[in-house]
């Protein structure tokens, strides 16, 4: 474990709980893409299947349980409890256009052709594009609530910190995983546009609105 990965995991945890609290407190999921949340639930479920077979550490197992439970809870709040506030008219990204190609790629490019490894690879590829429905929804509505932009900033920062973690691990532990690094770069690059808007607007107290 290193500081980059620890801060990255905590940033990821923060993002998930900021969103969960926003929906719970405001009793509304306006401006939030349910499709992205479904993809994130799929990412965690397919990645953490080894929860019961490979014990790494208490921290690792605890975080896996928290990530799965909190993301499933978010999907539950969005599609069941506060379904009336779900903005399906703007959440129209065709996620099958993500899941199918990612599924195919996971079969073709992986470290080991075993079910668990292919599912892990699928999860890594899917996570890199899972935020697209959310970014697409913001581009359609033209703006995002401030709390939603904080959520996105924390979520985007987590994988950017993981890139630093991989640089650290390469030099100090000789650890390198090309699949995770490439997907992590794609994932972080997708946030660049948002990061620019967040830093130039939200940091100065303005609302995040995309240039029309």
């Amino acid at each position: 474990m290193n500081i980059f990965r620890l801060v990255g995991d905590l940033s990821h945890l923060l993002a998930i709980f900021v969103l969960l609290l926003k929906i719970w407190k405001s009793r509304s999921c306006a401006g939030v893409s349910g499709k992205s949340q479904i993809l994130f639930a799929l990412v965690f479920i397919t990645r953490y299947l080894d929860l019961f077979t490979n014990f790494i550490s208490v921290y690792n197992s605890l975080m896996k349980v928290i990530f799965i439970a909190s993301t499933v809870a978010t999907v539950y709040l969005m599609y069941i409890k506060f379904k009336a506030t779900y903005d399906s008219n703007h959440d129209t990204f065709r996620i099958e256009f993500l899941v199918v190609p990612v599924g195919g790629l996971a079969f073709l490019v992986n470290h080991d052709f075993t079910p668990l490894e292919i599912l892990w690879t699928f999860s890594i590829y899917l996570e890199s594009v899972a935020i697209l429905p959310q970014l697409f929804m913001i581009s359609k509505t033209g703006e995002a609530e401030t709390i939603t932009s904080h959520y996105l900033f924390a979520l985007g920062s987590y994988r950017a910190l993981y890139l630093l973690n991989w640089i650290y691990r390469y030099y100090f532990e000789g650890y390198f995983d090309l699949i995770a690094v490439v997907a992590g770069c794609v994932q972080t690059i997708l946030y660049c546009d948002f990061f620019y808007l967040y830093i130039t607007k939200v940091m100065w107290g303005k609302k995040l609105s995309l240039p029309a």
Binding site: R5, D9, H12, R47, D50, N54, I56, N60, M63, K64, F67, H111, D112, W120, Y162, N165, E173, G174, Y175, F176, D177, A180
Partner: peptide, 10 residues
């Protein structure tokens, strides 16, 4: 370069 057969990252 070590490719971990067990993924130890979240």
């Amino acid at each position: 370069i070590i490719i971990e057969d067990v993924h130890d990252e979240l």
